[in-house]
């Protein structure tokens, strides 16, 4: 179908542009873009749950941090190599999301938001409590020498950029395929009208549960990738703020669209970057953007594009 062709060209186009940007923009922006792509993985994961399944979590920092600490601690304390540590991070975040999802999905709506918030807060405090290992807010550094996979030094400028690109491309394509699959269509149906989806014979609970796990695991991948590529893990990444940020990114870029998370993350990153040049109170930008978005553009940037003519936008 032509719709699918358009979608596919968009996806390929986005990835080609991201890869090409490395050769076009300055080193400073390369560094930013690498960070943006890794964080966009987080937004992609969040979007799967919030945008496509309609479940608003306020506790995704827990999954992000699970990936981050899973990788960081297994490297620094257990002496794992980068690749197995990456796996530990992913598996750990999958496990945490399986447990949290199992409990939190007994609730819905506002209660779901608060339960996820509380679990994440408990996780954050746990990271502080075991400060001996996690070094709390201060965090710890992962030595450059150990950040290697298959002999490639992931801390080197170009390698890091393309590793970040690889993580982003992986999650972006995976979610784009997933939401087009029957499973993803069912998630959208649940988001739109849960009762009707149930009466079409879908196991709503199981779909939501798998969505939480998939979303949590992708978020964990992002956390692990962040620690691996930037060599740092700290409790700040487990704090409430890091649960709010992916919500902001997705709202800004457009919930329930495949490119929304990337657009939102990039936009917010540069917005905050710009604001911090002017004031220390740069989070003011975050607050104002959230308020204005909920008031005037709940569909976000790509949602607005979709509404104004690009109806096919996936």
């Amino acid at each position: 179908m032509t719709g699918n062709l358009k979608e596919n060209s968009l996806h390929v186009g986005v990835l080609v542009i991201l890869a090409a940007l490395f050769f076009v923009v300055s080193d400073y922006h390369d560094g930013n873009l690498a960070r943006i792509m890794v964080l966009a993985v987080y937004a992609v994961g969040y979007n799967l749950l919030f945008g496509y399944s309609g479940l608003l979590s306020l506790g995704h920092a827990l999954f992000f941090a699970a990936g981050m600490y899973g990788l960081g601690l297994s490297m620094n304390l257990l002496g794992f190599a980068a690749l197995p540590a990456l796996l530990v991070g992913i598996v750990f975040s999958a496990g945490v999301s399986a447990i949290v999802g199992f409990l939190a999905l007994r609730t819905s709506g506002v209660a779901f938001m608060i339960v996820t918030l509380m679990f994440a807060q408990a996780g954050f405090l746990t990271a502080l409590h075991f400060g001996e290992y996690t070094r709390g807010d201060e965090g710890f550094v992962i030595q450059q020498a150990s950040r290697m996979i298959a002999g490639i030094d992931l801390s080197a400028h170009a390698n890091r950029y393309f590793a970040a690109f690889g993580f982003f491309a992986l999650s972006y394509v995976a979610v784009a395929i997933l939401v087009r699959s029957p499973f993803g269509r069912c998630l959208v149906a649940i988001r739109e009208n849960e009762e009707r989806a149930r009466m079409l014979g879908y196991d709503v609970w199981m779909h939501k549960y798998l969505a939480v796990i998939a979303s949590g695991t992708i978020s964990g991948l992002s956390g692990a990738a962040y620690a691996l590529l930037f060599g740092y893990a700290g409790a700040t990444f487990a704090s409430v703020q890091y649960s709010i940020l992916p919500l902001l990114w997705v709202l800004l870029g457009g919930a329930g669209t495949t490119i929304g998370p990337l657009i939102g993350t990039a936009f917010a990153f540069y917005l905050i970057d710009l604001a911090s040049e002017i004031t220390t109170a740069h989070l003011l930008v975050v607050g104002l953007t959230i308020v204005l978005l909920t008031l005037f553009a709940p569909q976000g940037i790509s949602g607005e594009l979709r509404r104004r003519g690009l109806k096919w936008l996936p």
Binding site: G109, A281, L283, L284, G287, I290, V291, T294, L295
Partner: peptide, 29 residues
Amino acid sequence: VLFRLGYDPERTIVATIGILYVIQQVTLM
């Protein structure tokens, strides 16, 4: 803000998160 959102429970939470940052950061400034 809240009135304009029609007190929708979820959107209100999101908006008050925004208000949280605004108040906190303006106080910082």
